[in-house]
Amino acid sequence: MSPAQYVDQQVSRAKFDREIAEYRQLESDYLRRGWLLVRAEFPNVLVVLAAPQLSPAAIVTGVAFDYTNYDMQPPSVRLVHPFTAEPYKAKDLPTVLMRSVEAGAPPIPGLQLPLGAQARFIAQQPLMQSYGPDDTPFLCLAGVREYHDHPGHSGDAWELHRRSGAGRLVRLLETISKYGVQPISEYQITLQPRIAGFAQREVPS
């Protein structure tokens, strides 16, 4: 549910309109990357992200933005079903936006590195976070309302990111596309063979 608009609506609307106008200006570039802006009506935007690198191309996810109170508040961002705009539950997410990050080295007994060498540990971490499979997950990223509203991120206030454009439409789409769509290289197919009976070489007379 959208929060109440308490910022002067003209201000939020003007900033929202700028986001949409700039997007429209380069829409053909974005379309080639598989971004389809299907609805933009203040304060909501729905963009469908497809993977044009696949053949046939596939729709990966919808992304719903809510720019209520922008940019006093960052936008809300949800991954949603592309045709119903219903937010995905964690268990139904088509992508969790997995990213590689450098992680602290765990203690490895007996590990001896040559002089001057350093071990780098890379961990994989989803940007979509939730507490359970039936929760609506949130995008754990500075510039997103759900991130800044989370008590675990009270030390990383929106005001620290506001001037860098962290909540801008294209920036958020770039991030979702980078981790959720661009890495897709092919369809993953699982086949489950079932024994349906016996085949016979011939039917004896």
Partner: peptide, 15 residues
């Protein structure tokens, strides 16, 4: 040519 400059994801991914 058009180049696209975007803010990196930065820290995140931990709820």
């Amino acid at each position: 040519v058009r180049l696209f400059l975007n803010l990196k994801a930065g820290v995140g991914g931990v709820a």
